[in-house]
Design a protein around this nucleic acid. Structure first.
Length: 480
RNA sequence: GCCCCCAUCGUCCAGCGGCCUAGGACGCCUCCCUUUCAAGGAGGUAACACGGGUUCGAAUCCCGUUGGGGGUACCA
């Protein structure tokens, strides 16, 4: 193994969330890739909160984003809030004004739009106020003067050369009419100020890159960072994941019982693949193998099925104790299908190993053990209809009820013997005369555990107890 | 409309001019194991968008077409 660079590698990357929503799957992936690169190179991972939109930014969302990052294990080395740095941006804007690199504009958005339409459909600002020498005042913004010719380009680490003709860049706003600086300005200044060496972010931001590059140039910068624009994460319709129509909140996935480490591992496979092809692996190995140059260019679909598979692998890899600990919030909370006081950790512990093998996400746990803590067998109409309608159901139940009633010993072997006996009594024997357990266990299972599928029957009933098993069997028999 | 980007199995990733009759993973299907369901094991299904070049040779390079996506705010 090649040792990664030391902590003095000089690589400085940042994740720049806007606190206008919770941590989004796409943002999490951006954060992850930045973090991976920083850790791989021994560089510095910075979280910079881009809260220049004072109307929409909410402090509590910043905290929620931090929490999610921490839960995912994406620790960072430095924290900044752009709202603490407005003076810096304003000073730069004033200098631009003095130098003639920017100008004030009092056009309303309607005016800009109307002129664009009159011009022939091409949206964008037309430079109307460039030479009007507008005085500061109400409704006045500051616009950056973009070149009328030439091109702005960069060699993207993922996309190779990307070029924009300056003619297509409008004179964009850098300071709002309320005096608050815009993200492009803040972004350009901060990247310089914080010594950012690599900008790793979503492809949805490519078109802002030439503007930032122009701003940096005006700021006197001669050494722009290396840009790496990540392919977007899309939904099944191949559209960018959006909070309107897709499940994108990372916290929601965690609440549904996806393990943070599984989430991180899965996210790492979106747009990136390890050189050796191994997909499921410890994050430390991903850190070791991660290279920006190995990132693909095309959009990746967020495949919940594959995420579930990853999660199942991670769940099964847990020790039973860890599994129990992680599952606890899902079985001892208040929104559980049984009276909270009837939950018994000791009885759950007896089931934990077989439950662990069967769940993909932790929120599936209650459905596998509810029969143990609920007063009656859970009612599942589909299972009932499927098994209790069969010809042998009544015979099996009658036989089982009678046998359970007189059973002395009560353990899994005893239950098995009872089910075997019921099979024979119901005529469920194969050509060799052996009892057909598959068929015989079905009605017993539905009568006691409520569903046609679930945990191993014999062990489950051993735990349920003889009397309760008998009671449920009788209740089901009466209902058939 | 204009600008930018993308294009290998249904999906994710590999392939970076000959090792490709295209590989791995998820999903799906079949079989095995089996008290149900999972898990596990063994198989199987399925792709280089199209058209031109370049080259002895192209999934790999170039151009075009088509398709898809992103952007086009006093959001980031």
């Amino acid at each position: 193994m090649t040792t990664s660079a030391s902590a003095t590698s000089g690589v400085r990357v940042r994740f720049s969330p806007a606190p206008t929503g919770y941590l989004h799957v796409g943002s999490a992936r951006s954060a992850l890739f930045n973090w991976l690169y920083a850790r791989h190179t021994g560089g510095t991972f910075i979280v910079r909160v881009e809260d220049t939109d004072t109307d929409r930014s909410r402090p509590e969302l910043t905290e929620a984003i931090f929490d999610a990052l921490r839960t995912l294990g994406l620790d960072w080395d430095e924290t900044y809030h752009q709202s603490d740095r407005f003076d810096l941006y304003r000073t730069a804007a004033d200098r631009f004004l003095d130098e003639g690199r920017a100008y004030r504009c009092d056009c309303t958005q309607d005016e800009v739009k109307a002129r664009a339409e009159a011009r022939g459909g091409t949206p964008g600002y037309d430079g109307h106020c460039r030479d009007r020498d507008v005085a500061p005042g109400e409704g006045v913004v500051v616009r950056f003067c973009t070149p009328d010719e030439g091109t702005t380009a960069w060699d993207d680490l993922i996309r190779d050369r990307v070029e924009f003709e300056n003619t297509h860049l409008e004179d964009f706003v850098i300071v709002r009419s309320n005096g608050v600086p815009m993200f492009l300005l803040a972004n350009a200044i901060d990247d310089i100020d914080m010594g950012i060496t690599h900008v790793v972010r979503g492809e949805d931001l490519v078109n802002t890159t030439p503007k930032v590059l122009l701003l940096r140039e005006a700021l006197g910068d001669t050494e722009p960072p290396l840009y790496a624009h990540l392919p977007l994460i899309v939904n099944e319709q191949r559209k960018k994941l959006s909070k309107r129509r897709d499940d994108v909140n990372v916290a929601d996935y965690l609440a549904r019982g996806f393990l943070p480490e599984a989430m991180v591992n899965y996210l790492a496979t979106l747009g990136w693949g390890a050189p050796d092809g191994v997909e499921i692996r410890p994050v430390a190995e991903i850190v070791e193998q991660f290279e920006l140059s190995d990132i693909g260019k095309s959009p990746a679909m967020f495949d919940i099925k594959k995420l579930e598979h990853f999660n199942g692998e991670y769940v099964r890899a847990l020790s039973v104790d860890e599994f129990t600990e992680r599952a606890t919030p899902f079985i001892s909370g208040s929104d559980v299908p049984w009276p909270t006081e009837s939950f018994d950790p000791a009885r759950f512990a007896a089931l934990a190993p077989v439950v662990q093998e069967r769940v993909k996400t932790l929120d599936e746990v209650p459905l596998l053990v509810d029969w143990l803590f609920c007063a009656d067998a859970p009612d599942d109409p589909d299972s009932w209809a499927k098994e209790m309608g069969k010809a042998h159901a009544v015979a099996v139940l009658d036989s089982a009820i009678a046998a359970v009633q007189v059973a002395g010993e009560w353990d899994a072997d005893r239950v098995r013997a009872i089910v075997e006996g019921a099979a024979v009594d119901a005529g469920l024997v194969n050509a060799e005369g052996n009892p057909q357990l598959s068929k015989a266990q079905a009605p017993v299972r539905v009568a006691t555990l409520g569903r046609s599928k679930g945990l191993p029957l014999f062990e489950s009933l051993a735990l349920l107890g003889r009397d309760e098993t008998h009671r449920r069997l009788a209740a089901a028999r009466a209902r058939v």
